[in-house]
Design a binder for these strands. Structure first.
Length: 249
DNA sequence: TTGAGGTTCTCTGTCATCTC
DNA sequence: GAGATGACAGAGAACCTCAA
């Protein structure tokens, strides 16, 4: 990625993070990036995989998740703090993206024992399989592998599995369509004494056709960086989950 | 490569209603 | 009373296409 573009997108994301409670428009963000709004939308999409609006919305919901899990601030106050004027809209958006209502998520303290999959999506007998690779020398805990329609872990996955660590995965009975394989884990890298860090990986889109038995999609885990959209879906606690057998789906 | 116009579509806010 | 849910309308973002 061009260094100028990288810096422009970074400036826009910083503006988003600094103004989560404000009413930001594409014009404001394009101004921060010093591009026209047309060009800005294109380069932002290319850099992050999400449109600026969706990325901002994801940051807001991620901040709401943090506040719900770590404070006792009311749902109404949190919805205002992260830029929503309507608690109804906030609650609906939160439920759709995280998989739990705001109060439900708070009761779970930020983790969930199980992940629901996309309803109304008939399976196809096809499988998506591949290998989750970790960075050389890195150690990881359990690895979440999920199929999503976009480049963000948001809403119920079409199919998912939790592996005891990096390695081979298979997702069976995958619905027809185009899917991104998104992985999430915590791990430590050599020469990095910051302890467990969130790691992410993305592959796809993988298109599942009728009559095709299996599609291959290898994923490389890497430490998360600022251009990665936050994980909105509520996941099991991957820092402490026992590293045993894959969780059946 | 970048900017701009027109169209389509998604998201948000509002409101009513319901549950806890 | 606080929060969740669903319907609906409007605003704004995304997309497509073309021109410079």
């Amino acid at each position: 990625m061009d260094e100028i573009v990288r810096q422009a997108v970074a400036r826009a994301i910083m503006t988003m993070r600094d103004n989560l409670g404000e009413r930001l428009t594409i014009d404001d963000l394009a101004q921060a990036a010093m591009f026209s709004k047309f060009h800005f939308t294109r380069v932002f999409l290319r850099a992050t995989g999400l449109s600026p609006g969706r990325f901002l919305s994801a940051l807001r919901l991620a901040e709401a998740k943090r506040l719900l899990a770590t404070t006792t601030i009311s749902v109404a106050d949190i919805s205002h703090q992260v830029g929503y004027n309507s608690v109804g809209t906030f609650s609906a958006r939160f439920s759709g993206s995280v998989g739990f209502s705001p109060t439900g998520y708070r009761q779970l303290r930020g983790t969930t024992p199980r992940i629901a999959e996309r309803a109304g999506q008939p399976g196809s007998e096809a499988a998506v399989r591949g290998h989750v690779w970790r960075p050389p020398g890195a150690e990881t805990g359990p690895v979440f592998v999920g199929l999503f329609p976009a480049k963000i872990a948001e809403g119920a996955p079409a199919r998912h599995v939790i592996l005891p660590g990096a390695g081979q995965y298979t997702l069976t009975d995958v619905p027809l369509g185009s899917w991104y394989v998104i992985t999430h884990a915590f791990g430590s890298c050599p020469n990095d004494d910051r302890g467990l860090r969130p790691m992410t990986g993305l592959a796809g889109p993988v298109t599942v056709h009728r009559g095709v038995a299996a599609s291959l999609a290898d994923v490389r885990l890497r430490p998360r960086h600022g251009f990665d959209p936050p994980v909105l879906l509520a996941l099991p606690d991957l820092r402490h989950a026992p590293a045993r057998h894959p969780v059946a789906v």
